[in-house]
Computed example of a mutant assay.
Amino acid sequence: MFSKLVMGLCAISMLSSACTTRNASQLRAENELTMLVGTYTTGNSKGIYTFRFNQETGETTPLEVTEVSNPSYLTLSSDNRFVYAVSEENDSSASVHAFAFDEDQGSLKLLNSHKTMGEDPCYVATDGKKVLTANYSGGTMSIFPIRYDGSLDPADTLFEGSASGPDKDRQATPHIHCTVFSPDSNYIFASDFSADRILRYAINVKEELPRPLSETVDVEPGSGPRHLIFSKNGKFAYLINELSGKVIAFAYTDGRLNQIQTITADTLHARGSADIHLSPDGRYLYASNRLKNDGIAIFEVNPEKGTLAKAGYQLTGAHPRNFNITPNGKYLLVACRDSNLIQVFARDITSGLLKDTGKDIIIDKPVCIQFTNRQ
């Protein structure tokens, strides 16, 4: 009797231990993301680097390296099966690449590449049917249809920006800096940097291609509009302006952006504001500044009105061109190009403020951070 009782207790103990191990393993898997980092390859970098990032602990494990020239911006398909990355070259070799992506291994397999027909592509976006590239020096937006296997057809549409801004040095020629799909999937917006405006194109549902320009949204002359993002509920949009250092808040309805506020992110007027992101819960907005007082401006978001209020400022390494926030909102990672590292900041979800964890990821000239999508 005693022997059976001991055996029963042992079995329960072993089962409990196995369950604990499985739970720990499952929890680790849920918390671990695959992270992709785009770089400039003018130094020691080889191209796109992948890592395993634990969004609970902030720990990073290197995975793979894929050689590609100057992949300064990249994006993933919604199902994480494909990656689209630009090669930011200042000549006719400027390209966009389609990769098959193994999320578990962090490996990329090149499917094909096409010329962007515009120099210095610096941004790429996809809706699963099309890939957009913003070609900065070319002053154009290119559109590539996606094939059934995730590869790309050559660009079949090219829209051009213009140059009418007052800055004779920075706005002398057309520059398109960002191309995004609207949250309702009916429009494409492009930041026309040198004309101080946002271009809007309606998507032809039948042909799934943009129709000619239907509207522009003008901003203050000399602003240099750079990156545009939308709130998760699709009611608001936010634009970071590189030259003015200001964030503009818009109300969004059926393709129309109506300005509701302007607030300064770069108080030193360094003319180098770069990237902008909302926290996953939409309560805080972050904007990066370069050239002076390099860091991240932090704003609290009014959820009903969409307006912003200053909440703080976090200094970073040199030239924080791009940054990203983990899906659980616990960490904010900053690609500090000229410090050759990615800083990992812990994020206070209540105050929105940041604290450097010291868990730097050493990498040459990082300029883009993307996490795999959570379904």
Rank of each mutant, 00 (worst) to 15 (best):
R211K: 15
A195M: 00
L341T: 04
K246Y: 07
A172L: 09
P327M: 03
A335L: 08
K46F: 00
T216A: 10
A172E: 15
A309K: 13
Q261H: 03
A309H: 14
V301I: 13
G128P: 03
N80C: 08
D156K: 10
T307R: 11
L132F: 10
N112I: 06
L341G: 00
C10A: 06
N241F: 01
A297Q: 01
G8Y: 06
L239D: 11
E88A: 06
F193E: 02
S3P: 01
V180C: 05
K235S: 12
N289C: 11
N324D: 14
N23A: 11
R28P: 01
G352R: 07
A29W: 09
S214W: 00
I188S: 03
I362F: 13
T157Y: 12
V131M: 03
Q314Y: 05
K4Y: 15
H97V: 01
Y73G: 03
Q259G: 04
R81N: 10
F230K: 03
G139I: 02
Y40S: 07
V68G: 00
L291R: 15
T264Y: 00
C19V: 13
A287T: 10
L36S: 07
D294Q: 11
G165S: 11
I188E: 03
L199E: 11
G272C: 04
R337T: 08
A18R: 10
A195K: 01
E208W: 05
A155T: 11
E67W: 00
L5P: 02
T126V: 01
V124W: 00
A251T: 04
F230R: 09
K246G: 02
S69A: 13
Y73E: 12
D294T: 07
D102V: 08
N90R: 08
S107C: 11
A318Q: 08
L257W: 13
S137P: 02
Y313W: 04
N186K: 15
F144M: 04
Y238A: 04
L111G: 07
D281I: 03
A195D: 08
F144W: 05
Q375F: 12
L278F: 05
L285V: 11
Q55Y: 15
S164T: 14
